[in-house]
Structure formats: structure tokens, C-alpha cells
Design a protein around this nucleic acid. Structure first.
Lengths: 167, 167
DNA sequence: TCCCTGTATCTCAGTACTGTGATGCTTACC
DNA sequence: GGTAAGCATCACAGTACTGAGATACAGGGA
């Protein structure tokens, strides 16, 4: 994914125009930046026995209140089986409980238990500090510039259908 | 991770200063953007029976030439067991072969087979187009702006030691 | 020469999911 | 009022890795 190619086979990819080159380069850099930040986030939540996805759930429930499992699924971007699995695990640990939805008997809420609320209240401030520290490579205004750009990028990519199978 | 909080428990996190808020917000946006692009990349390489990590390996070998397994590991950011696993799989499919390193008998090179080279030559141009399409939310100059910002972000985060265990 | 420390790769059990398909409840339309 | 269609949830097999140790070699010093 180097785009200043120095290899003997470089001539074989002459079809790379400047737009493609900038896209590939950004893809590599985006991946590495995400990976680097994710490592910090993971290491932090792992200290409390949580994965990133599990933390995403309890944090969402903490800040939004009880949510339908389907809402959680869309929010933290996991598969349908994934939410079930994650909520099962959090329920076993006594951090989350399931509750019936009065208006739709198909659906169920996930909500934090008292213990779950205490846990999030205890670890969230530290987590925020860890993320800020991990992001210390950018000033606050650069973070906002980056956020603006990445928001456009993400929104467009989410809206775009995956390129269909050709073979 | 909403930072304009609307929940009944919002008062419980008053310790979030503006720097932390911008960092958390960027973390969410970065994750979603990465996830959205990654879906396109995955869907594309999956058409050829490859994962992103496997594609990363053959692409690196294509553009750089034979590499030590350790070099590959650092380049595509997987664990040591991961490189072994990935190269094993690519070797089984006849895309990659291992070769001894003359100067160090512990080390081994991975190199593309003829078939591997043909595969990359065939799929890389399409892949570049898929990535560019996935990135169509940003103009070329915005991509470069984003790349500059993310490079700083990633470099700093990689250099920073993971926050140590406190309990 | 013989350690001793460091590095490269491999092994393997374990993990955190994903994807497919089934099930049960609800709503909409005949 | 029956039946089909649509969601939300669940069960389970499969997958792509990770992480911790084991093994083999390297290189410098006593």
C-alpha cells in the first residue's frame, strides 16, 4: 500500500490514478490510526473485564437509559447474534438486565442494574481520560477538523451499497 | 458516547471537559468511518476468498517483494501467531511460499508464487477502485487533509505506552 | 568454549465475535 | 377472521484471529 512504489513490479500498476492513490493512502492511515487508538481503549476497558463492544453497550445504556436490543445493535454496530451474546454475558455478570417492552411484546429492553450503573460511573471518567491521552497527537481544534472530515467520509461510505459480486 | 447528553443520568458525568469531549466524539466518528470503509474493503476482497489481513500480506509482497515474516507482522499489525496462521493459509492455497533466509536461520521469507502474483495483478486495480468509491465522501484534497491529521493522530497514539494497570 | 540475553518463528488453546437459519409475536391485507 | 408478511430475538456452528508459552538460532562477553 506504499504509493511511492519502489519495487521491481511497480510498472504493473500504472493504472493507479491520483484519486485512487489518495484513497488507498488514506485507507492505510485511517486503519493504523484506528488500530492505535483502539489498542488504548481496549487496554483500558480490559482492566475492568470488558471488551470494547461490552463497554459500548453499558456506556450507551448509562447515557441514554434502557434501550431495545435492536437499538443497541444499530448503535454499536454488531450483528443480531452479537447483541444477544453480549447482553447474555453482561447479564451473567449482573451488570445488565432484560425487561419486557409494554408496547410491543416482541421486543425487550436492556437496562443497567444498580451494579452496572455503579461500574460505569466508576470507570467512565478514567476512560475519557485514556481516550484523550491517546488523542494527544491532535490539538482540540484539529480533532474537530478531523471529526468533520471523517463524518463526511463515514456517512458517504455507509450510504453506499457494497459493490456487488462480479464473479 | 453521545456528548450532547439527554438522559436522566447526565448530571453524573459533569467531569467531562471540552478536551475529553472532543476526543470521545472523534473516537466514535473514527470508529464508524473505519468500520464503514472496512466493510467495502472486506466485501471486495471476500469476492476472491481473502480476508483483509490476507490481502494485506499478498499486496505487501507484491509491491515490496519477499519479506521476512516479522516485517510482515509489523506491517499489517497482527500478532506473531497471526502471521504464521495467515501465511499458512496463503501457502495452502498456493499463493505464497516460504523461503529460508541465508543470513539468519531463524528467519524465513514469505514470497508470492507465480499464481499469487497473477492474483494480485488481477484484483488490485479493482480493489483500488472500490476503495476510491468508498471514499467518495471526500474530495481528493480533503482526503489529503484527513490523511495528514490522522497520521499525526496515529503516530502519537502508537508511540504512547498503553496506560498501565491500576487495579 | 560456554553461557546468557535477545530475537524469529511456531504451536495451540481460547476468545469474541459473525452469519445463517429458526421461532415467536405482531401487523396488514385480503 | 384467517393468512401472509415483517420484525425482534435466539441458537448454533463456524471463523479469524490473539496471547502465552515453546523452540531454535544469533551474537556478544567471560
Amino acid at each position: 500500500m506504499t504509493h511511492t512504489v519502489r519495487s521491481p513490479v511497480a510498472k504493473k500498476v500504472p493504472t493507479l490514478d491520483a484519486g485512487e492513490a489518495s484513497a488507498l493512502r488514506l485507507w492505510v492511515i485511517l486503519s493504523r490510526a484506528h488500530e492505535a487508538i483502539a489498542r488504548h481503549a481496549e487496554a483500558d476497558v480490559a482492566r475492568h473485564g470488558l471488551t470494547i463492544a461490552e463497554f459500548g453497550i453499558v456506556e450507551a445504556l448509562y447515557h441514554v437509559g434502557p434501550m431495545l436490543l435492536g437499538e443497541l445493535q444499530r448503535r454499536i454496530l454488531v450483528s443480531s447474534g452479537g447483541v444477544t451474546y453480549l447482553v447474555d454475558r453482561l447479564e451473567e455478570r449482573g451488570l445488565v438486565k432484560r425487561e419486557p417492552c409494554p408496547s410491543d411484546r416482541r421486543a425487550r429492553y436492556a437496562a443497567l442494574t444498580t451494579e452496572g450503573k455503579k461500574l460505569v460511573a466508576r470507570i467512565f471518567p478514567d476512560h475519557a481520560r485514556v481516550i484523550e491521552r491517546a488523542m494527544s497527537g491532535l490539538t482540540r481544534s484539529d480533532r474537530e477538523r478531523a471529526a468533520t472530515l471523517l463524518k463526511s467520509l463515514g456517512r458517504a461510505a455507509e450510504a453506499l451499497p457494497l459493490s456487488s459480486v462480479k464473479e
